[in-house]
Simulated scan of single mutants.
Amino acid sequence: MSTAHPIPIVVSMGDPAGIGPEIIARAFRERPALQQQVVVAGDVAAMQRALRTTASGPASAADALMLAEVEVLSAFGTVPPGCVPVIQACSLLRPVPLGRVSAEAGRAAADCIRWGAQAVLSGKARALVTAPIHKEALAVAGVDHPGHTEMLQALAASHLGVPVSELPVRMMLSCPGLSTVLVSIHVSLRQALEAVTPEQVLETIRITDAHFRRTGFDAPRVAVAGLNPHAGEGGLFGREEIEAITPAVEQARAAGVLVSGPHAPDTVFMRARQGAFDVVVAMYHDQGLIPVKLLGLEHGVNTTLGLPFVRTSPDHGTAFDIAGTGQASPTSLLAAIDAALAAT
């Protein structure tokens, strides 16, 4: 972590009404060497408030942490020691109230994401780490995308000049001992059930296998969870396993993927944690995220698979209830930064 890199990682500030700026400030307090590897895409005033919030106790080197506004990304390495490099990536006319949903905060968060994505897509940054956003704030701000994953997919597709449908992406949540990739993400449960098709499941398996091979696995062991209790019990509890999941698994296996399933969803995550599999493909958002968050929310990392760049994020939300208190832990953000560093 101490070696400077000529191209930085960009960390987007997240919703300025939440804990995003605070956990970024605390991450720099805990790891001063981040100054040589990370630039914050955010709002200078919001980050200054976060630095004040996270200062504690008698004056020390950590409490004396300062903010340095960076005009161009290539200048991040010239920031004086003891400073957090920040690029003004959004327009906020005034500080937003902490712990409240607002269009101003949602708009600022979206602007920072866009800035960071363009920096990575243009080759000026090596990866994007995104601090938490609030989906309701995005909505009231008029942002057309419900979350990071969909927004980054659209930005990348536009940059590449292809339709969004030609750039399939998937969300992966990881904590120590468990990684899970989702067939569908921010949709209703009814829509999630409709998304369990042979094509969607197969594409998820392929994207998952490709990601793990790129990150050092020769033949990742991919387990596919069933949708229904006991993976359908041969059709007694539903036919999705027979009609959608099994055909996808068989086709992926024929293409050389080391994949198995469908496995009973109430035990497959436990088996993966015990070492039987490297990753679990889950059929919908909560099926995959509940076990990861139960096992390791503070160390969890959200990674978007399928993008033409590395994007990671802490596995938690904006925590409006503690915003401004200085209590928020940077552990998950640091894990996300570490994952981005390792992947680049």
Rank of each mutant, 00 (worst) to 15 (best):
V201W: 00
L167E: 05
T197K: 09
I185H: 08
I245M: 02
E166L: 07
G235M: 01
A192D: 07
D209T: 10
P168F: 06
R170V: 03
E136N: 13
G142Y: 00
M151T: 00
L202M: 11
L202K: 00
V181A: 10
K135S: 03
D209F: 08
D209I: 10
C175R: 08
V164T: 12
L155V: 04
G116H: 05
P168L: 09
I133H: 04
R206A: 13
A119Y: 01
S188P: 14
A137W: 01
L138G: 05
V181N: 10
L128N: 03
L155K: 01
A141G: 14
T246R: 14
P220L: 13
A137F: 00
P220M: 06
E194F: 14
I245R: 01
R239F: 02
L121M: 14
A210L: 12
L173M: 08
L152E: 04
L202F: 12
I185A: 15
S122A: 15
L167V: 06
S174D: 12
D218A: 15
A225W: 14
K124Q: 15
D209H: 11
H230F: 04
T180K: 00
A225I: 11
G161F: 09
L152S: 05
R221M: 11
T215S: 10
Q200N: 15
H230S: 01
A192Y: 00
R239L: 04
A125M: 06
M171H: 08
L227V: 09
S184T: 15
A141Q: 02
L202T: 01
L193N: 14
